[in-house]
Computed example of a mutant assay.
Amino acid sequence: MSRYDRYVLSQYLLFFGFFALILVAVFWINRAVSLFDWLIGDGQSVLAFLEISALSLPNLVRMVLPLAAFAATVWVTNRLNSESELTVLRATGSSPWQLARPAMVFGLLSAAMMSALSLFLLPASLAQMQFREAELSRSVSAKLLNAGNFLHPSAGITFFIGSIEPDGTLQNVFLTDQRDPSVEITYTSDRAYLVREDDEAHLILVDGLAQRKEAHNDRLSTTAFSDFSYPLGDLSPARAAGARPLRNIPTLDLLRERASITEEEGHSAGAQAEELHLRFARAAVTFAVVMIGVSTLLMGGFSRFGIWKQVLGAFVLLILIEGMRGVVADPVRENAAMWPLIYLPATLGVMISVLFLHLATRPQALMRLTRRKTQETDA
């Protein structure tokens, strides 16, 4: 690798890190606001918030990585052109293919990073995040053990604790159950304990009073008790069981256990094929958008007015490639044999970049083509 290649590659990587950091920060702040409100509002610790935030980062990076790579490619290539560095290299005999060589290496590095994310890190992080979110939802202490506030852990339930002793004893407990429209039951007690038997939580009320009010006749009956067990199963939902989301299934399982996944979890062969090949296609698309960025800008020579037309064309092609990714997914879900369609956007992007680099090596033909289009427009 020449000194020029190392210099340009270092610029690509530098600005890639900058754009990736900015984009991840923007997406993460938007996600963190709702996440913070959910976790901290339900009594979870800051550590739980940081853990869930860290587990969501691979998915955020996966979304912004192609955009960051494309932005870095366009930014650096445009700067090299505006500072006449590309013009000097062309004058010394460097071909567009040689000028695009650092971008090819950068595209391969970006594709390798995307492969590591899509194939390994992303499924593992999503599966772990689903597991932790289920655990947090099941946490009775997060929903109930908050002294001094009226809480509504479930629809129709109002819960209040006066104070919590260091040994875990709940003092001055108030609980109203209005889930049944025909009956309202209110429990009050001096002391209570939160216990768990197997996988079900119970609230043990001591020295309390139960008041039962029937809506149809406004009759109120009261019962004093020395101890009473109130099941909290409805307030502490069990961890969701059943089929795993396809995004959470490890790549090796999608490669080797398709039949068992279809039989046990109900995911069709087409949905599995679309998810599996999409993980590989993301890396190819990342390489394609980098090559589109550099090849489109290399088609324009030095101009005092810049190469804004080429930059605009590169963004249009990026939107086209990203739009095609959504179009080709539906046929694959319906028919797994059509999985090659998943790679169509990346293949088209690479073909366009090869065509543009070929045209850039023949500036006279490109000028004749541009002149012909201008004459047809004037006519």
Rank of each mutant, 00 (worst) to 15 (best):
I29L: 15
M291Y: 01
A273Y: 06
G233H: 02
G168K: 03
E214K: 11
A91T: 09
Q171T: 10
L21V: 01
T222I: 14
Q128F: 03
Q130A: 13
H267C: 00
V290R: 04
G293S: 04
N172V: 04
L13H: 01
A72Y: 03
S2D: 08
A48I: 04
H277K: 08
I321H: 09
Q211Y: 06
L14W: 06
S229V: 06
V46I: 06
S303T: 14
N81H: 11
V289R: 02
I352M: 11
L39T: 07
T262G: 10
R138K: 11
A215W: 10
F315V: 15
G266N: 04
R304F: 12
M114G: 03
I249V: 02
R325A: 08
F36K: 00
I342Q: 12
L317V: 09
Q272V: 12
Y343G: 10
S2F: 08
W75M: 12
L317I: 11
A241Q: 14
L298R: 06
E51F: 05
P58G: 02
M338W: 15
L39F: 00
A155Q: 15
A100Q: 01
S295M: 09
G156P: 12
Q272H: 05
G156H: 01
D199Q: 13
R279N: 07
G323T: 00
A314H: 03
N146P: 08
Y193R: 11
T92S: 15
T223C: 00
H152S: 13
R279V: 01
L21S: 07
I342C: 04
I164H: 03
A111N: 06
E165Q: 13
L47M: 09
V294D: 02
I319E: 12
F305V: 09
G107L: 01
F174D: 01
S125L: 07
T73D: 11
